[in-house]
Simulated assay, not measured.
Amino acid sequence: MTETQQVRTYPFSEELGIHVDPIYAELRSAEPVNRVQMPYGEVSWLTLGYEDTKTVLTDPRFSRAAAQGQDQPRLREEMAYEGIVGLDPPDHTRLRKLAGKALTARRVNAMRPHAVRIAEKCADDMIAHGSPVDLVEHFALPFPIAVICDLIGVPFEDRGKFRVWTDGLTNTAKPVMSQAEELFAYMATLVAQRREEPTDDLLTALVRARDDEDQLTEQELLSIASVGLLLTGSEAVSTHIPNFLYALLTSPEHYEQLKAEPELIPAAVEEMLRFIPLNPAALFPRYATEDVKLGTIVVREGEPILASIPGANRDPEVFAEPEKMDFTRESNPHVAFGHGPHHCLGAQLARMELQVMLEVITTKFPNLRLAEGDEGVEWKRGLLVRGPKKLRVAW
């Protein structure tokens, strides 16, 4: 029952690097659904097992829309702007379907050769700079920003602005709404340009869905383009690129494996998505719209619940030797991109970019290694994502 559960501070610790706190495994066995208190907001339930996490992410009795206006459990004092993430079906289904039409598998596949050229240019810039170099500054940041900006249709000279907005929207110490307002105002200018001069980019496709089909409001259009695609499409990839390289270079046998067997790169991307946590804590709580039983726990109507992706992705009931990074894993149904209605809209784009990154880096830098010295790796702090702020590499 709720009143007998110990309430633990969450996140459980300030975990830096790519590690998952061992308490996740301990609690998964003892209390797979437990009570936690985040820095802000009300006490919440937290799932740590794979099946419970999938249930919370898919069961319509756990509502994202019901979270709006609540004192949601969260990492920063100010409520985040959530856009499409704060909706339930059918509104969420309508918007996701429209955005999905613009971001098709065909469009992503067609972008791959261009993404390769961008990645090779970033790698060549690293070589021109000389060893050692900060991989974050010279590859992890410019590569995904260039890809997503080309996809949406952001002018090249404006790309630097998005690093400022991304930092503001993911920094727990900065006011998020002012950053969102600046981003929306900029995107509204681009939307007006596309109405006057349509092009063959994703933003034009969204504008047509708004104007010709009357299926989007202006605010919905700006939300999908700004937060749903532009920011999430660049931030997750720019964080995971140095995460992946740090994992490979601290386990050099895995780097050698990918050089010798490049056909393993797609499986390696899936395994590192499973193995490496992106966020320091579970985000986007759902609220129960009625009493729901999870194992021996009853989540009462009106109570929030958080779904732990790292907890689910390390569940030994689903993944053999879950604490081991294995590129030959036969079954890997990870939930790194979420599950169900809110499965990440840009998942296929992120997969493509991460695959291209590994193909280019392992080819261009067969002798890549971490630069010597304590200054080689500096980890992000106070953000909604976790990864290296600086990753100096040498060859």
Rank of each mutant, 00 (worst) to 15 (best):
I305V: 15
N367W: 05
L383S: 06
L135F: 14
Y24H: 13
P388Y: 03
A185N: 08
T172S: 08
L370N: 13
L273M: 11
Q215G: 15
L248C: 06
A80Y: 00
N34R: 08
E51T: 12
A336Q: 04
R107D: 07
I23N: 11
S223Q: 12
L248V: 09
K54P: 09
N332M: 07
V356C: 14
L216K: 02
T289K: 07
P32D: 08
Y255I: 07
A225G: 09
R381D: 14
P310L: 07
E3H: 10
G86R: 02
F12T: 10
F62Y: 03
E353V: 01
S226Q: 02
E235L: 07
D315N: 02
E213A: 14
M357K: 05
C149N: 11
G69N: 06
M177E: 14
A102Y: 00
L151F: 10
A225D: 05
A371Q: 12
I305M: 07
A102I: 05
A102T: 10
T104P: 01
A281S: 14
P310T: 02
D212L: 06
G86A: 12
E51Y: 00
L258R: 06
A188D: 15
L368P: 13
L294M: 12
V269S: 06
R208W: 03
V43R: 05
S29L: 13
R107F: 02
E181L: 08
T362V: 14
G311A: 04
Q257A: 08
Q5V: 08
R208S: 14
R314V: 12
S234R: 00
I224T: 08
E323D: 15
A25I: 01
L345V: 08
L27N: 09
R286I: 10
R286K: 07
L384R: 06
I297T: 15
I241W: 06
R159P: 14
S223G: 09
F337S: 11
A320P: 04
C344V: 03
I224Q: 03
A347G: 11
V116H: 11
E256P: 01
I241Q: 12
R369D: 15
I297F: 04
E196V: 12
Q6F: 03
V108G: 05
P144G: 06
V164N: 09
E181W: 01
I145E: 05
E120M: 07
C149E: 02
S251K: 05
A267R: 14
N313Q: 02
A99H: 02
K364P: 01
P285R: 00
D125V: 01
I152C: 06
E271T: 14
L258D: 12
E78T: 02
V136E: 10
